[in-house]
């Protein structure tokens, strides 16, 4: 008993330390925190307004006044990258939150009730897996009309299948556990079983996947922006900045490279940090099974 208690304590320490434990995880967590901070306080941090054009200063390389240079309209790239963080991160997070919530709901219902409802719903959901995410999102945005809201919806639909599948599998596995049968035997209704027993035990892996998907979602948003399907000018999104700057790629490469760098960095930060959390949660699962 006391041995298991001791290892328990050690494991809990490891669990708490894990997200900050690995040096990579720590750096990426901090980087991600910085990005979120910058996005939140963009108006305070940006040296210029994101849409302030200065036709006298078109396409200038990085300098003391414009750390990241200026773009083809003479706008400050640093300010636009800072404001762009708002769009990219919020679109990514909102889309994933939407996708995960819908996926958890549908997946839990399918997994719990099964039967014909499950078969038909899952067949429809699986259809979305037949297309590459980017193609699916492009088609959806084309139908809904370009803009931020359609981008969010398109990205959410693109990732819906994976969240639904994952939740459904988890719920189906948990449904066979004795404590669920115990609850039924006590006279519990479906809502009680789903909310109190199934979902709390099913969510951990879904949350980790949501975390990792946010990176992909930011990338997808940038891609849609690059195709001109996302945020409309002059709203700065990293993808749209790369797109509009691509005409001047050889004259003013920083206009493309710098937002691209931030897309890459945010994806890396989220993935490494997500992995660190995944590892930490795995420890927790092992304790639970022991």
């Amino acid at each position: 008993m006391s041995l298991s208690l001791k290892t328990q304590g050690a494991a809990t320490l490891r669990l708490l330390g894990k997200p900050f434990g690995g040096i990579g995880g720590a750096i990426c967590g901090a980087g991600l925190g910085l990005f979120i901070f910058v996005a939140l306080f963009a108006p305070l941090l940006a040296p210029y307004a994101y849409d302030a054009q200065d036709l006298a200063r078109i396409g200038l390389p990085p300098s003391a006044e414009n750390w990241f240079g200026t773009d083809e309209f003479g706008r400050d790239v640093l300010s636009r990258v800072i404001y762009g963080a708002r769009i990219s991160l919020s679109v990514g997070l909102t889309a994933v939150a939407l996708s995960a919530s819908a996926g958890i709901l549908i997946g839990a219902l399918c997994g719990y009730f099964g039967g014909r409802f499950d078969r038909i719903t899952m067949a429809a959901i699986d259809l979305t897996w037949c297309f590459p995410e980017i193609l699916l999102a492009l088609v959806l945005v084309a139908i809904l009309g370009p803009g931020l809201n359609s981008t969010v919806i398109a990205i959410a639909v693109a990732y819906l299948a994976q969240f639904t599948r994952l939740t459904r599998t988890q719920v189906r596995a948990l449904k066979g556990e004795t404590f669920v049968e115990v609850s039924r035997c006590l006279g519990a209704g479906h809502a009680h079983i789903l909310l109190r027993h199934l979902l709390p035990n099913a969510l951990a892996p879904v949350i980790v996947v949501a975390m990792l998907t946010t990176g992909d979602a930011i990338l997808l948003e940038a891609t849609l922006g690059f195709f001109g399907m996302g945020a409309q000018p002059p709203t700065p999104s990293w993808g749209a900045m790369m797109s509009s700057g691509s005409a001047q790629l050889f004259n003013a490469p920083w206009v493309v490279i710098i937002p691209g760098l931030f897309v890459a960095l945010s994806v890396i930060f989220i993935n490494v940090y997500g992995d660190a959390i995944l590892a930490a949660l795995d420890v927790k699962n092992r304790i639970r099974r022991a």
Partner: peptide, 20 residues
């Protein structure tokens, strides 16, 4: 459901019979 309180069951596997 309301009748269930009058007949109860103890299950074979104590390890999975309590929500972790």
């Amino acid at each position: 459901r309301p009748l269930r309180r009058r007949f109860q069951m103890v299950f074979q596997d104590p390890y999975s019979s309590i929500n972790p």
